[in-house]
Design a protein around this nucleic acid. Sequence first.
DNA 1: ATAATATAACACCTTTTGGTTTCATGTCAA
DNA 2: TTGACATGAAACCAAAAGGTGTTATATTAT
Lengths: 110, 110
Amino acid sequence: MAASSAKHDVFQAIADPTRRKLLKLLSSEEMPVTVISGHFPISRTAVSKHLRVLADAGLVKERKVGRETRYKLEPQPLYELKDWLQFFELYWENKLGALKRLVESDEQDL
Amino acid sequence: MAASSAKHDVFQAIADPTRRKLLKLLSSEEMPVTVISGHFPISRTAVSKHLRVLADAGLVKERKVGRETRYKLEPQPLYELKDWLQFFELYWENKLGALKRLVESDEQDL
DNA sequence: ATAATATAACACCTTTTGGTTTCATGTCAA
DNA sequence: TTGACATGAAACCAAAAGGTGTTATATTAT
């Protein structure tokens, strides 16, 4: 899995379905690894590695509490995704809207 | 690379930087593979495989014109991504909101 | 008909990824 | 202090991913 020496980016981090489920799970509540693992059919170690990838991408924050490590969603990096997506919105939604804007700017030129 | 027998999903398709560049490149104009390859440092075959992954995810549309195959962006599947993202907007906006409240209360303390 | 072009299809290679099991370390409770 | 628990780390594995180069096939131009 992800050895995680090099920083992972958001796009790659969310590519995996398990990691996406992790993000949702950790969105509301902070949780220790053991509890998190209970929600997945894979081993605790595997979950731990996914968490590492997410942490690398900055999507999750770790906090040590006694002998456990608790994880929580850190949504900021998703901004990058939103920005990226915004570029394409032009193309799907309003082909009409884009045309309208174009026409309007042309009108101003008149 | 992606053999592409099983359908690829959008999240996986956009995970690769080359594929993201492909999407941008194909957003404005329809292009045949050879022209597309000119924009990348990798082999034409590699580009072709990336295009296949994108097509699998429905992000790109192929059209045969004579002996060439032209590719164009098909932005619809990005909707899924937007929906997914929307869930998390709640969390980061709250955070910003919370920060704003914090700053404001600090100002009031002065 | 023949040569050149565009691209898909194969076969192959290396690195990464998702997963496992086992071991080491740190912390809490008795 | 001794044992149980939580987690990280390490070693390992199979499959997928990204890449290459080499055919094969269809289409266009001469």
